[in-house]
Amino acid sequence: MVECDKKNFDEEVLEYKDGYVFVDFFGDGCEPCMALMPHVHELADKYEGKMKFTS
């Protein structure tokens, strides 16, 4: 999973031309975000090579 910030978001997400991009927006102190993170990582493993996952 590619970690995005304001420096690389355009390049990694908006300008990506090789397929679909999944962007996981989360907050460090967000309990629901933390609960979903293992599922997002499972999806990233399952669809590796078919879809780009970023956070």
Rank of each mutant, 00 (worst) to 15 (best):
M51S: 03
D45C: 04
M51Q: 00
V21W: 12
M1H: 03
G49K: 10
D28W: 12
P32T: 13
C30S: 11
T54M: 11
M34W: 05
A35H: 15
F22S: 01
E48R: 11
Y16E: 06
K17T: 15
C33E: 14
G19C: 14
E42G: 06
P38K: 12
Y47Q: 11
M37E: 10
E3V: 13
V40C: 01
L14H: 09
G27H: 10
E12H: 08
K17H: 12
M34P: 10
K46N: 03
C4S: 07
E42C: 00
D18A: 03
F22V: 00
G49N: 05
F9T: 13
F25Q: 07
K17G: 08
K7A: 12
G49E: 08
V2K: 02
V21Q: 08
E42Y: 01
F22M: 05
E3P: 10
V2A: 07
D28N: 06
E42W: 01
Y16Q: 08
D10H: 14
C33Y: 12
A35T: 15
C30E: 08
C33G: 15
D45R: 01
K50Q: 15
G27M: 09
K52R: 15
N8M: 04
M37C: 06
G29Y: 15
H39R: 01
D24L: 03
K7H: 08
D18C: 01
M34C: 09
T54D: 13
D45Y: 00
L43E: 14
D18P: 06
V23L: 04
Y47L: 04
F26R: 03
M51I: 12
D10E: 11
V23N: 08
D5I: 02
V13R: 04
M37I: 05
A44N: 03
F9P: 12
E48A: 05
A44Y: 00
Y16M: 12
T54G: 04
E12Y: 00
G27W: 09
G29Q: 03
F25W: 13
D24Y: 01
K46A: 10
F26I: 02
K50V: 09
G27Y: 07
F22Y: 00
M1I: 08
E11S: 08
D28Q: 07
M34L: 15
N8S: 02
V40H: 00
F26N: 09
E3S: 12
L43T: 02
Y47P: 00
G29C: 05
K50W: 12
A35V: 15
G29L: 10
D18L: 14
F25H: 02
E12F: 01
D18H: 12
L14K: 12
K50G: 09
Y20G: 08
V2D: 10
M1E: 04
G29N: 09
L43C: 05
M37V: 01
F25V: 11
N8D: 08
F9A: 13
K6W: 04
S55L: 13
M1P: 05
Y16W: 14
S55M: 14
V2F: 02
E15D: 06
E11T: 12
K17W: 11
C4Y: 04
K7N: 11
P38E: 15
D45H: 07
F53R: 05
